[in-house]
Amino acid sequence: TVLAAWPAKAFGAKDMTEGLANLLGSSEMMESGDISIKAPEIAENGAVVPITVTATMAGVESITIAAPNNPAPLVASFDLMGGAHGYASTRIKMGKSGDVIAVVKAGGKLYTAKKGVKVTIGGCGG
């Protein structure tokens, strides 16, 4: 198996659009209802935010997760092959409130969805 090299330039980008374009070859993407992002409305811990992306369209090749408010917005990319489903789950760091973006490459095209996650200082109570 030939492995693609770690895309240093994409992951080093300070701007999400630039990072995505660098990684995926294009920043042209369509919003899609076939992507669902499971993430907490309010993060229990900004250092460990559980994110699960499910893409139900045919021919999913990769799932990329980004957090535009992070110092390096591109967080993770999963290349899926050999019968792998359009599904990836991981935990990401979020320094402050903002969107989590999922970009799915399927049939050579890019699709996207987003979900807001609030990161709070916390500490009050009834």
Binding site: I42, A43, E44, N45, T120, G122, G123, C124, G125
Partner: peptide, 9 residues
């Protein structure tokens, strides 16, 4: 619902 946020996790 917000126990680990309002109180120590």
């Amino acid at each position: 619902p917000y126990t680990p946020i309002a109180n120590p996790q």
